[in-house]
């Protein structure tokens, strides 16, 4: 009777609940990535369209909201998602380490079958991949959002910033590496998020969700890679 309240309180912080939280945060970020990719592709419509789109994002729902109000609301939601996602990830990581003597999947002395029976490579990279992505996002924001780091030259025009940046091979390379990490993260993460939220209801659904995860990942990777590659190749320019 009293135990019930205790159970409920602790169930709120259970690994299952944290995975649910991580999943919700992750899904919001995936939705953001889709929108972000869409915006990136505007680069093919020229500088005016691209910069216009960027300006539009700040005027959504004006005058109901002040300038950049909607964008800030989205930013706050996104920031909360990122925060929840990372917080949950670290708590769960800590718990997994505690449950396995700190050695996770490598806790057996036998060196045979270190990769398990069927686990995907993507599933190995969730934690380090997540950190890689987080570091990249900071670099990415400094580069293209706040314009602090400016390889190729700073500019008030988002279009110019983008073209300047991706004209440099190592910027594109770093971007591609981050995208690879993101791809692996999404490949396992999208399926995992759906399953964590209780949507994996049968073997068939599992297959479908895995296919969906691969598809969404592929679309995002291609969508994100095409503009920088085109810029580097000189097909899109100032």
């Amino acid at each position: 009777m009293m135990a019930v309240t205790a159970a409920r309180r602790r169930a709120t912080g259970s690994s299952t609940a944290l995975h649910g939280l991580m999943a919700v945060g992750g899904i919001i970020m995936v939705l953001f990535l889709v929108a972000h990719m869409y915006g990136n592709l505007k680069v093919f419509s020229g500088q005016a369209a691209f910069d216009g789109y960027s300006a539009y994002l700040r005027t959504i729902l004006e005058p109901l909201l002040p300038y950049a109000g909607a964008l800030w609301i989205l930013r706050v939601i996104l920031l909360l998602s990122v925060g929840a996602h990372i917080l949950a990830a670290f708590v769960l990581w800590h718990r997994a380490r505690a449950a396995t003597g700190g050695r996770g999947g490598y806790r057996y002395l036998s060196t045979a079958n270190r990769r398990g029976v069927q686990r995907s490579y993507a599933s190995f990279t969730m934690r380090w991949g997540g950190i890689t992505i987080a570091l990249f996002v900071i670099y990415h924001l400094l580069h293209l959002t706040v314009n602090v780091i400016a390889p190729g030259g700073a500019s008030e025009s988002p279009y110019t910033r983008m073209v300047n940046g991706f004209s440099i091979w190592w910027v594109v390379l770093s971007y591609a590496v981050a995208l690879a990490a993101l791809g692996l993260h999404l490949r396992h993460g999208i399926f995992s998020a759906l399953a964590s939220l209780g949507a994996n209801t049968s073997t068939t659904t599992r297959r479908r969700y895995n296919q969906a995860a691969v598809l969404v990942t592929a679309v995002l990777l291609i969508g994100f890679l095409v503009p920088p590659l085109c810029i580097l190749a000189g097909w899109v320019g100032p």
Binding site: S15, T16, H19, A98, G105, Q118, S196, N200, S202, R206
Partner: peptide, 28 residues
Amino acid sequence: FGGCSQIGECTAVCPAGIPLDMISQLNH
């Protein structure tokens, strides 16, 4: 015990063939 990150090694070794979707049922 730790949390589930849907890796699926459990079902691969399970002698009774319990499928992964039952973890999703739990989450649900």
